[in-house]
Amino acid sequence: MNEPAAPAPPAAHAPAADPSGAGGGLHDVAGLRVGHAQDPRRPTGCTVVLCPPGCVAGVDVRGAAPGTRETELLSPLNTVAEVHALLLAGGSAFGLDAAGGVVRWLERRGIGIAVGPLRVPIVPAAILFDLGLGDPAVRPDAALGEAACEDAVARPPGTPAPEGNVGAGAGCSIGKLFGPTRAMRGGLGQAAQRWQGDTVAALAVVNAVGDVRDPRDGRLLAGSRSADGHRLEGCLAALRRGERPPTLVGAATTLAIVATDAPLDKAQATRLAQMAHDGLARAIEPVHTPFDGDTVFALATGAGPAGHRAAPRGVDPARLAVLGALAADSLAEAVVRAIRRAAPLRLGETVLPAACDGLPGPD
């Protein structure tokens, strides 16, 4: 990732405020707790979402290079009915070790499915590739997973977790379709909204091969740069000119969690995850490539004002359609916020500008 020609981002630059004024995140769904942990030795980390009892989950994987744990059990065809936490981590396949720390943390607190005298915590997880920044031997492990859990419970319920280059977003970059030397900074963002008593929220960790545009006006926020590193070029513009991307093994992935307090069943949570992927497609181009492991989890606590946990699981199709539409909208907003809150990075000769650097672009 050497780029001596690119100017170093000025240290005074800071992530820009989101002009939409949007706020919110997974903390707006009652019972969910978000925690982050970073390894100080290089930009990498993990993010955990602790779930209330009875939380239903679904998942939809559309990238062709995923790294996941316990996603198959989320199928509506399979037996396990609830999860106890979700984990997102850097470190590629090595980062799945962090899920073991979350499992241990939960077990010590007696949280999990009762199996005889034991409690077995269910912690699905997904990882992204950030090994190109710093020492690749440093990656999230079980201790970092436990630290993320401690961070989650240290924050009062309903308090926003930080965004930007934190947790699983610590080592994120985007715009890598034509190689990492033309990349920019990615990160982690959240968003939420309400509809007739239901809350829908999203968290995105954006480490995409592609660029990020603001769906509100189509403006390119960050992504692939020109060969000299001084301008935003954009992946599609380069492809239209006939430029051919290299093969990028282990390069990217956008991870996301959408959540609601509506009482969805497992099949409906899976549908929510499927519909939410449209939010990635609105904000990231290209998305779901052979080099990305794009994965969206969905959580349904069933504890909101419009759906108390005592009610049977499942909502009518019209309500599910609205929740899915809002999940996609919130996820697109979370992607934009991740990029607007990212900070530039210089690590040795590696330079990753961020959207806040205001590089000139094609539009």
Rank of each mutant, 00 (worst) to 15 (best):
G132A: 13
G134S: 04
C149I: 05
L133N: 08
L128T: 11
G167D: 00
G158C: 03
G112Y: 01
D97V: 10
C172R: 01
G95W: 11
P136G: 10
A143W: 07
P124N: 10
P156N: 11
A98L: 04
A152T: 02
P157I: 06
D135Q: 07
A98I: 03
F94M: 14
C149W: 01
V103L: 11
D130H: 06
L96W: 01
E163I: 14
P140L: 04
R104W: 08
R104H: 14
E146N: 00
V123D: 05
V103K: 11
L128S: 10
D151P: 02
C149V: 03
A98V: 07
L96V: 05
L144D: 05
R109G: 08
G164A: 05
G95K: 12
A168M: 01
D151I: 00
G116F: 01
F129Q: 12
P160G: 10
G132M: 11
A143T: 13
C149K: 00
P117I: 13
I111H: 02
L133E: 00
V102T: 00
G145A: 06
V120Y: 01
A154Q: 13
G100K: 06
E107R: 15
G90E: 03
A168W: 00
V153C: 02
L128R: 10
G95N: 12
G134N: 07
G169W: 01
L133F: 09
P136I: 06
D151R: 09
P157Y: 01
G171K: 00
A148C: 02
P117A: 15
P140D: 08
G101S: 04
A126H: 06
R109M: 03
I111S: 03
G90F: 03
F129L: 13
C172F: 04
T159W: 08
